[in-house]
Design a protein around this nucleic acid. Structure first.
Lengths: 153, 153
DNA sequence: TATTGTTATACTCTATAACTATA
DNA sequence: TATAGTTATAGAGTATAACAATA
């Protein structure tokens, strides 16, 4: 009931959707995923995988269950993710000290080298992403999002 | 290299992730999806399905291909989505006028009635979502997201 | 008993390619 | 030739449940 020019030919009416933060978040997510994949396409690394590599690098030796919690994944899902990264020689499962049930996850040299390249791409991607925003707006956006999901206390 | 208190026991280091708008968007998305599903759980409607119902309501008679473009889905994906909604008697495929290849999509009476209920839930969900934001911050957030993904020109 | 990693399995969402009927 | 919808198929990404080894 907001827009009147309906018989114009192309533009559909999105109803209440554009006013919903949840919907805008969803759209932004889609745009981001596509640009991210394009930017890192040749390396076959999704946003999720990138995040996992960063977390392993920043917490060398962490256990699979810890990674699961950090990445909001089930333990069983982490198994296949690490299988994947280990197959590609980016990550290694090491025997953990003190607990023979656990694995300690570390980046291999290859993994660390790749991550370095990925980070540069991601920074470029991030710039593209917010290129229509001023530096201040970008900061505001991150702050507002953190308020919605206060994970990093 | 930003945080120092690493041996504290629980809190992992997220490296560069928290500063990335793309990452915060991703986290917010996860939180939203979970709360949305919980809010509409008994109706078995995802954020995506909700959006599709809204678009069909706001553009009664639109064709499947038009819906595909609007919802960023492939034509073939729309087929199963509409199969699903039609099976649940929420949407109807009608013969389109002027073109016997196309279907015209409309909400059924049941679909319209359900959507009315869903909208109330979604408004509540949205309130919860942004409850840590002021009204002004909420407006700012939507505006900033629209700038990232300027779909609604 | 509880926890870690694993397996087997399945479900959702999505896309690609080839087909059909119309245009 | 081109387009609308469909089918068959496949691939991510994810979860649940049950299990063996270890705590």
């Amino acid at each position: 009931m907001t827009q009147k020019k309906s018989t114009e030919k192309k533009g559909l009416d999105y109803g209440m959707l554009p006013g919903l933060a949840g919907y805008q978040l969803r759209l932004a997510q889609i745009a981001i995923f596509r640009d991210f994949s394009e930017a890192l396409g040749e390396y076959d690394v999704t946003p999720g995988l990138f995040g996992i590599l960063v977390i392993i690098e920043a917490n060398a030796g962490l256990k699979q269950t810890e990674l699961a919690r950090a990445a909001h994944l089930d333990r069983s899902t982490v198994v296949s993710v690490i299988d994947n990264l280990e197959r590609r020689s980016l990550v290694e499962r090491r025997a953990a000290e003190n607990d023979r049930r656990s694995n300690s996850l570390v980046l291999t040299a290859d993994g660390a080298a790749l991550l370095k390249k990925l980070k540069r791409r991601v920074v470029d991607h991030e710039k593209r992403l917010v290129e229509h925003l001023t530096e201040e707006e970008r900061g505001t956006l991150v702050t507002l999002l953190q308020k919605i999901f206060p994970e990093h206390r």
